[in-house]
Design a protein around this nucleic acid. Structure first.
Lengths: 149, 149
DNA sequence: CAAATAATTTAGCCAAGACTACAATTGGTT
DNA sequence: AACCAATTGTAGTCTTGGCTAAATTATTTG
C-alpha cells in the first residue's frame, strides 16, 4: 500500500523538497553552537576587553561546565585558543566567522524591525532565525530594508 | 576585571536580552522534532492515506531506526498512537499541533515568497525558520502578506 | 502455501549539549 | 605569606537524535 494513491503530484514534489530542507536544518544545527560562541566571544572582547568562561555561561544562561566542554571542542575545531585558567581568544578563522555572524544578525534584526516587529522581539527571534537563513533570503532581507528607507 | 569598563550600556543591555533569546532557542529545539513529525504524519495521511515508518524516514532523510525511537518518545508524550508493525496515527493533541504547524509553515513560506525569495528557497528556509518565530513576528508576517495583495 | 522481499523492531554504539559535584588554580586582602 | 573567594577544570550522568546490525513480523509473489 506504499505506492498506491499517487493522487496529487504537487504535494509529492513538495515533500521531496522538504527532505532537502530537513538536511539543511540538521546542518545548521551543527554550526549553530560554534557561531553563537564565536559571536559572543567577539562581543565580550569588544565590550569588556576579555572573554571568560564565566561570562559566556551567564550570557548563554548555562553552567560553566558546559561552556568548558564546548570551548574544548571549538578549540579542537580551530575557532578558539585557550590556555588553562586564562581568558579566551578567537583564531583568525573564528574571527572571520564572528564577523559574518554579526553582520547576518544585524541584517535579520533590522529586517524584522522594518516590518513592524518590536525591538525586543526582533532580538529574541533573530537569535533562532539567523542560523536558518540561506544567502538568498538574507539578500532579500537586506534589499527590503534598503529599499524601504 | 569582571565589573570594570562598563563603557557602553546599550550593548550590555543587548546581551541581557540575548540570554533570554538563547533560552528561547533551546526551548524551540525541544519542540522542533515533535512538530516536524506530527506535521509530516498529517501530510502523509492526507496524501497517501497512511503514515508509515519507512515514509517518515525517507521524507526526513534519516534511517527507520531513528524514526522508530522518536515515534516511541512521541507516543509517550501523547502525540502519536502506534500499534506494533502498523502505521501511525495522531492523537487529538497531535492533530491540533499539526494543524498549527501547517498554518504557521504556510504563513512563513508565503511571506518569504512575497519579499522575493524563490519558491524553492522559501520552502527550504521555512523549515528551519518556522520553529523560531514568535507569535508577534508571525503576526507581522501575516499582516505583511495580507497588506501586499 | 511457501519462499522471498519488505517493513518494523530491538539492541548497542556515538557525539552534542545540558547538568551536578568535586578538584584545582588564580588573585586579591589581610 | 597565607587565606579565601572566585574562577576554571574534570568526572560522571542524562537525554536527544543520529547510526549499523541483527531479529522479527507482514506482505507479496511464484
Amino acid at each position: 500500500m506504499t505506492t498506491t494513491l499517487p493522487k496529487n503530484a504537487p504535494s509529492g514534489l513538495r515533500r521531496e523538497i522538504r527532505a532537502a530542507a530537513f538536511e539543511q536544518v540538521r546542518e545548521a544545527h551543527q554550526s549553530e553552537t560554534a557561531e553563537d560562541y564565536v559571536e559572543m566571544i567577539a562581543d565580550l572582547i569588544a565590550e569588556k576587553g576579555e572573554a571568560r568562561v564565566v561570562d559566556l555561561a551567564s550570557a548563554f544562561g548555562i553552567t560553566h561546565a558546559t561552556v568548558n566542554k564546548t570551548v574544548a571542542r571549538l578549540n579542537k575545531e580551530g575557532f578558539v585558543t585557550n590556555e588553562k585558567y586564562r581568558s579566551l581568544f578567537l583564531t583568525p578563522k573564528g574571527q572571520k566567522m564572528a564577523e559574518a555572524c554579526k553582520s547576518r544578525h544585524e541584517i535579520v534584526v533590522g529586517f524584522l524591525k522594518s516590518i513592524g516587529v518590536s525591538a525586543r522581539t526582533a532580538e529574541l527571534d533573530a537569535e533562532g532565525v539567523e542560523h536558518h537563513i540561506s544567502p538568498e533570503t538574507l539578500k532579500a532581507f537586506a534589499a527590503f530594508v534598503k529599499k524601504k528607507k
